[in-house]
């Protein structure tokens, strides 16, 4: 697939001598939704800020559709829309004026029809003449998205787009992101909500302490790192585990009514057949069983533990 954004050997050391990014290499594919996951202070915003021209890189380079972000900043930046993490807006401007301003700033001639469409898509049309200060937090977030979309960018950065947004609005936001993707926009978002990445992303990157520790297709990631669990509902509760089954590292749950077996879905052998035979030999009878797969959240938590 075609690369639209290419980050190579990018490092950032702030004036405070703090190294926020360490030799990041990352290629974003045209048209994908890429989720950047990482704990607070990992360097997500720093990475986005460098790509967008707000922070200077210490080393390395970034190309946007072949345009270097320093040497050829006009072409590079014209392609990018940015929705920042912080809700930074002018208080006294009207919604319409501020969105139109953004379009002009990015070098596009006025186009009221496009601005209207963007505002309608974000349910801000009714508010178009309101002063920004009168908007709620969620509306301001959408306003920042409208500003970023005002100049028809090909790449959209969303730095924690759903922070402080209620559940319904979050679903609307996801919907919007999908429809943007359908219209050909490449989307890079950061989030703390892992279900959000799980729900939307095509690929996921995990960043921790300034290092990109993993980049993979979401499905691949879940397949590779996902653990499966099998839960057996017992006929009669078991007070404790028979020593004969120690090798399986089983857990007893629900006051001895459930046995939980965790196995690696990718392993050569899952051990299920052997377990069932051994259970039979031990005279343990179960009435039901089901398996579950670990969520991205579990994967993420275990990755973070490893990184520490």
């Amino acid at each position: 697939m075609q690369t639209i954004l290419s980050v190579s050997e990018l490092s950032k050391t702030y004036d405070s001598r703090f190294q926020a990014l360490k030799r990041i290499n990352l290629d974003i594919r045209r048209g994908e939704i890429f989720a950047l996951l990482g704990p607070n202070g990992a360097g997500k915003t720093t990475l986005i800020s460098i790509i967008c021209g707000i922070v200077k890189a210490s080393e390395g380079s970034v190309r946007v559709d072949g345009h270097d972000i320093v040497a050829d900043y006009r072409a590079a930046r014209a392609m990018i829309g940015l929705v920042p993490q912080e809700l930074t807006t002018d208080a006294f401007e009207s919604v319409w004026a501020t969105v139109s301003f953004s379009r002009g700033l990015f070098g596009k001639p006025a186009n009221p029809a496009h601005i209207e469409k963007v505002l309608r898509d974000l349910s801000l049309w009714e508010k178009k003449d309101n002063k920004i200060i009168t908007l709620s937090g969620g509306m301001k977030r959408r306003l920042l998205i409208a500003k970023a979309l005002s100049h028809e960018p090909e790449i959209l950065f969303l730095d924690e787009p759903t922070a402080g947004v209620d559940v319904n609005l979050r679903r609307d936001m996801w919907q919007l992101v999908r429809s943007l993707q359908a219209s050909g926009v490449t989307i890079i978002l950061t989030t703390h909500y892992i279900d959000e990445a799980e729900e939307m992303a095509d690929r996921i990157g995990v960043i921790s302490k300034g290092e990109l520790i993993l980049v993979d297709d979401k499905a691949e990631l879940m397949r590779k790192l996902g653990k499966k669990q099998m839960t057996l509902q017992l006929q009669t509760p078991l007070p404790l585990l028979p020593p004969a089954l120690a090798a399986y590292q089983l857990e007893l749950a629900s006051d001895g009514n459930e046995l939980i077996y965790t196995f690696d879905a990718q392993g050569e052998r899952t051990g299920i057949v052997a377990l069932l035979e051994d259970l039979n030999d031990a005279g343990i009878v179960f009435k039901d069983l089901h398996t579950t797969q670990s969520s991205l959240e579990d994967i993420f938590v275990s990755l973070m533990k490893e990184a520490k």
């Binding site: 021209g53 006009r74 072409a75 930046r77 920042p84 208080a91 990015f106 070098g107």
Partner: peptide, 14 residues
């Protein structure tokens, strides 16, 4: 002061 300078810095303006 307000932080809206992010937009100016990220825009294709010299």
């Amino acid at each position: 002061f307000t932080g809206t300078i992010y937009e100016l810095l990220s825009a294709p303006v010299s």
